[in-house]
Computed example of a mutant assay.
Amino acid sequence: MTNGSTRDRILDALEQLLLATGSAQVTLDAVAAEAGVSKGGLLYHFPSKDALLLGLVSRLGERADKQLDDAVSAGSSITEFYLQSPDAAAEADLQVYRSLLAALHSVDGQNHALRDAVIAVLRGWDEHLQNEIEDPVLAEIVRLAGDGIYFGAMLGMPPPDPELHRRVVERLAQSGDR
C-alpha cells in the first residue's frame, strides 16, 4: 500500500478490496472503512463508485506512464521496456501490477465508461510501441509477447529462462531497428 495522500489511501483500499472480492462486492462504505476514512471523506475525493473506479484506472495510467518514462530516461527502448522481465522486488512494478489487476477486476461489462478507460490505458501502451516500431506486425508481436510476460508474472507463473528471455528481447529489438 502507498503511504501517501488520503486519495491514494482510498485507491489503495479499493485495490485491496477488488483483488480480494471483485467489483460486485465493493461498496463505498467498505472502501472508506478499509482506507480508515469517513464515508464523507471518501465522497469528498470520489463522489460516486464510478468516480472511484475511474480514479483507479487513471492512477494506473499515471503509474504506467511514469514507469515507462523512467525506463526510457535510463536508456531503455520502449520495446526493451515492454518485454522486460518483471522485477517482483521493485515497488513501482508491484504498484502497476496491483493497479492493473484491480482495474481488470473492476471491469464487469456493466460500466462501459470504466471498460473504455481501461482499454484506453492499454491502447496507450500499444501506441508507444507503434510509434517506436515501424513494422505494425512486429509491434503487435512485441505487444503480445510483453502482455504474456506481464500477465504471467501477475498470475505467479514461472518467469522465462533469463538467457532465453534476453535473446528474445534482443532479437525483437534488432528486428525493430531494420
Rank of each mutant, 00 (worst) to 15 (best):
V26S: 08
S99Q: 01
A153H: 15
G124D: 02
T79F: 01
A145F: 02
L155G: 12
S5E: 10
L53Q: 11
L52I: 08
E132I: 08
Q110I: 01
L42Y: 11
T21H: 15
V142P: 09
V121N: 01
E140L: 15
F81L: 02
L18V: 11
H165P: 07
Y150E: 09
E134I: 07
G4N: 09
Q110R: 03
Y150T: 12
A103F: 04
R7M: 04
V118P: 07
R59S: 08
D147Y: 11
G146F: 01
Q110E: 10
Q174C: 01
I119W: 07
M1W: 04
E132L: 06
Q16N: 10
L100M: 14
L11D: 05
E140V: 12
S48T: 14
A30T: 11
G124N: 09
I119K: 10
S175Q: 11
R167V: 05
A117K: 01
L28V: 14
L114S: 02
A89C: 02
S5L: 04
R166T: 13
G146Q: 12
R9Y: 02
V37G: 04
Y44M: 08
L53S: 03
T79P: 00
L114H: 04
V31I: 07
L144W: 15
G146W: 06
S58F: 10
G75T: 06
E170Q: 14
S99Y: 01
H45Q: 10
E15L: 10
E163T: 15
L56Y: 12
E62G: 09
Y44Q: 12
G55N: 10
A92D: 15
Y150H: 14
E80H: 04
S23K: 11
Q110M: 01
A35Q: 14
V31G: 05
V169Y: 00
P47N: 04
L101W: 01
A102K: 08
D12W: 00
G75A: 03
D116E: 05
T79Q: 00
D108N: 15
A33S: 15
P159D: 06
A24R: 15
R63K: 09
L28S: 07
S106E: 09
G146D: 12
L104Q: 09
A64M: 07
G75E: 06
R63H: 14
Q67G: 13
D87K: 03
Q25P: 07
G148K: 09
V142T: 10
A13H: 08
L172F: 00
R166D: 05
D69C: 05
L101P: 02
D116H: 03
I78K: 01
R123I: 11
A113W: 06
L101G: 09
G109D: 06
Y82N: 09
Q67K: 08
D116S: 09
V96L: 05
L100A: 03
E140F: 14
M154H: 05
D161E: 07
L53E: 13
